[in-house]
Amino acid sequence: MTQNHSSAARARRYFASGPGHPVVLGAVGLGIGLVVWQIAGSAEPVLLSTPGRAWNAFIELVVSGKLFTALGESGVIFLIGLAIAIVVGVGYGILVTRARLLREGTQWLVYALQAVPMVAVAPIVLIVMGFGVGAKSFVVFASAVFPILINTMEGARHAPPELLDTAHIFRSSERRIWRDLLIPHTVPYAMTGIRQGIAMAFVGTLVAEFFLNATGIGGLMLSASSRFDISTVLALTVLSAVIAVSLMGLGRLLESRFSSWRGEEGR
């Protein structure tokens, strides 16, 4: 018995062996990366800069206030676009479960539009809508709405039929069916969509700033890149990676906060 157990344990080690806590390992990995960057950057300063110089460039952006202006500009279109995407995505997603004609008539369109990369459409948005806050928010909206809409549609479609039947038998009004049944049931699914939508909204923000007009974080990046200011470009690239990872963490937090609402029904 014991021998059997120890051999199984050895088998485990054979396959998934290795020391270290994931967080410690991650920190060590980042440390190694910084050292390599420092060494490589000392040899090739024009192309690679160094961690120190990228940090200085970042501090420079903070001190001059440019970074906060840019974050504000990006934040506005991000929030407007995302908010409209959530309202439209969740609203329409629930609406189509109550209106079968609408669902069967438009579902194909949702999936078709979802396959269109927003980047490719950006120049057309530019000539049709211009490059104001509205047009840029529209790009954010169009990037974020599809995951929200599709997840909500999936969730609302699986609303338990027994409950819907019960509501009908008790002559529940349409408004109360929405408020007490459909929306609470759909929230956890919508949250999955919103998590994906948050990430897509950030992508959309950069698309808008790169291709409509150069404002915000994307604008800072473009202008630094056209000056070949590699330190600033690197600082901003790392910053946008940090923003993206944090937004994803935020989305995951939101999703798990509401996941307990998921009933056992269906699956």
Partner: peptide, 28 residues
Amino acid sequence: RWLRGLTAPYVAGLYAVPLLALVPLATI
């Protein structure tokens, strides 16, 4: 496992960052 731990921050960061943000670096 240790290799996964060491590379995890890079994989997570590069996967999360919008591709557009990498274009300025690539062109430089």
